[in-house]
């Protein structure tokens, strides 16, 4: 594992190693000294071309808990607004000695392109509508903590699948880990290629709900929509929103997940979001542990760079 670009690149063993490592590292967040010296002297750049609060802060907290130096770079107010290309920005960061780059970009595939240009480790923190592998890892981690396993779980992912990198990464990772995923959405909010995804598809939330161990609600990403995909917010919410009535029809042990940010009253009602079955805040906490694990596994040991075969620098 040299980079983390796609949840689909992870083998089952690699994914489990990340989850097990995250579990050990979660202890650090409970101690009085919330810090490990492991990444001392390593520099991690958070390269964010899209607005993000929780992911950037989560990566920043994770890197700092491992004692890495963190440089935050947001496209707004930087040389990017003067027209600098991704490649030139990347080469600048490399010249400054970045060992790892965490990239969030609106273009699918941006992280993989970046990995070709820089020598250091690249971690995909969301590339457009394509992938968000650390989100899928923290979701799998949360399922494991709440339900004790991922293998054999029936997971429903509900909502705007078409524009969701979270859905794609989760389908890939959860399938690798042996869960059965069902996507639930109106036909207009499913990606065109969904028949090639390793999962089931349903248009009927009420039919899928009682059979699910995990219900993951997704936000309708209005900012990525250039035409109208459903008649009205009210109708969408009626058919695909999770409210108290629907929650009552779920299995007793089943949990409700949401990657955030939530739009209360749209895909999830406030009552459900605040219920004990909802794991929203746990997902945020777990995100830090999972990202610490990813940073440790990619940057903690010898870094393979072309031309120096993993020698210490």
């Amino acid at each position: 594992m040299q980079h983390l670009l796609s949840a689909g690149d992870l083998t089952r063993d690699e994914a489990l190693l990340i989850l097990d490592t995250a579990r050990e590292l979660s202890q650090v967040s409970e101690r009085s000294v919330k810090k490990l010296p492991t990444l001392r002297g390593r520099t991690v750049v958070n390269l964010f071309y899209e607005d993000s609060t929780r992911t950037r802060i989560s990566f920043e907290a994770a890197a700092k808990r491992m004692s890495a130096d963190v440089i935050n770079f947001s496209a707004r107010g930087s040389s990017v607004s003067k027209g600098e290309s991704l490649k030139d920005t990347a080469l600048t960061l490399q010249a400054m000695g970045a060992d790892g780059v965490v990239i969030r970009h609106s273009a699918p595939g941006a992280a993989r392109r970046l990995a070709d240009w820089v020598d250091g480790v690249v971690i995909n923190a969301g590339d457009g509508t394509h992938e968000h592998p650390t989100q899928a890892l923290l979701d799998a981690y949360t399922m494991r903590e709440r339900l004790g396993r991922v293998e054999g779980l029936r997971v429903a992912i509900v909502g705007d699948i078409r524009h969701s990198r979270v859905a794609r990464s989760n389908v890939l990772l959860l399938t690798t880990l042996g869960a059965e995923v069902t996507l639930v959405a109106p036909p207009t909010l499913l990606p065109v290629s969904v028949d090639t995804w390793p999962c089931a598809v349903s248009y009927d939330l009420d039919e899928v709900l009682p059979k699910s161990d995990v219900v993951m609600m997704l936000r309708v990403q209005a900012e990525r929509m250039h035409s109208s995909f459903f008649p009205s917010a009210r109708e969408y919410s009626r058919r695909y929103g999770l409210d108290a009535d629907r929650l009552a029809r779920m299995a007793d042990h089943a949990i409700v997940m949401h990657p955030g940010p939530m739009v209360r009253g749209m895909e999830i009602s406030a009552e459900v979001a605040d219920s004990a079955r909802s794991t929203v805040t746990e997902q945020v906490t777990n995100g830090v542990s999972v990202r610490m694990a990813v940073l440790y596994l990619l940057l903690g040991g010898a870094i393979h760079r072309p031309g120096n075969q993993g020698e210490p620098r």
Partner: peptide, 21 residues
Amino acid sequence: LDITMYRDDLRLAPARALGST
């Protein structure tokens, strides 16, 4: 006590799996 994260030779080998403390 797992001391993996405190070793002085971490960078000589690929990242190791952690044990539990």
